[in-house]
Simulated assay, not measured.
Amino acid sequence: MTEEAFLANMTLIQAQLGGIGSNRKLIQENQADGDPRSGYQGTVYSFMFSTTFPVAKVYEMIILIREGGNYKISGDQLFAKPKLKEWFS
């Protein structure tokens, strides 16, 4: 993902969710050797955060890869938090 694409995606996300995310809490972190879906060869790091936006609470997955000694954002995905009380009632 290029810097320009990342900034454009963040602008769209913030517009749709009412502003900047806050109260990020790290929920999970993983490391994998490559990505079979994309064919990427190398170490892939993923971080799952619980994030609060003005109009929604979401899980945010940020994926990093290492290229040339630098870490680069490979992806950023948002998933709506389920309302668990509805699942168990």
Rank of each mutant, 00 (worst) to 15 (best):
G19S: 03
N9D: 12
S22I: 05
T52D: 10
A5T: 14
K81S: 12
S50N: 14
G19H: 04
Q16W: 08
G68Y: 02
Q16C: 12
L84D: 06
I63Q: 07
S38H: 03
S46C: 09
Q16E: 08
L26T: 08
A80L: 11
Y40M: 01
E60Y: 09
M48Y: 09
P82K: 14
L78M: 08
T43K: 09
A80M: 12
N23R: 10
T43S: 04
D35G: 06
L12A: 13
S22R: 10
Q14Y: 09
L78T: 02
E3A: 12
I13M: 13
D76E: 12
E29G: 05
I65W: 01
Y59G: 08
L84Q: 08
A32H: 05
F53H: 00
E67H: 07
T52W: 02
N70R: 10
G69K: 05
P54V: 04
S89H: 07
G68E: 05
Y71H: 13
Q28R: 15
M10C: 14
L26A: 11
G18Q: 00
F47P: 01
T11P: 00
V55W: 06
S74C: 06
F88W: 08
K85L: 10
W87K: 12
M10F: 12
I63S: 06
V44S: 00
G68R: 03
F6V: 13
Y45N: 04
I63V: 15
F6D: 01
G75A: 15
G68S: 07
F88K: 04
S38A: 09
M48N: 09
G18W: 03
F47G: 03
I73S: 03
L12V: 04
V55C: 09
P54Y: 05
M61D: 09
G39C: 07
Q14L: 06
M1C: 02
G18H: 02
K85Y: 04
G68C: 03
Q77A: 15
V55F: 10
A5R: 05
G68V: 02
I73H: 04
M61N: 13
V55T: 12
M10T: 12
Y71C: 03
F79Y: 15
I65V: 15
S22L: 03
N23A: 13
Q28N: 15
T52E: 11
L84V: 13
F47M: 06
A5V: 11
T51V: 15
S46Q: 11
T11M: 08
I20D: 04
F53P: 00
T2L: 08
Y45L: 14
D33N: 06
A56I: 05
L7T: 04
I27F: 03
V55R: 07
N23C: 07
Y71T: 05
L17D: 01
A56H: 02
S74N: 13
F49G: 06
I20M: 09
Q77W: 14
L78G: 03
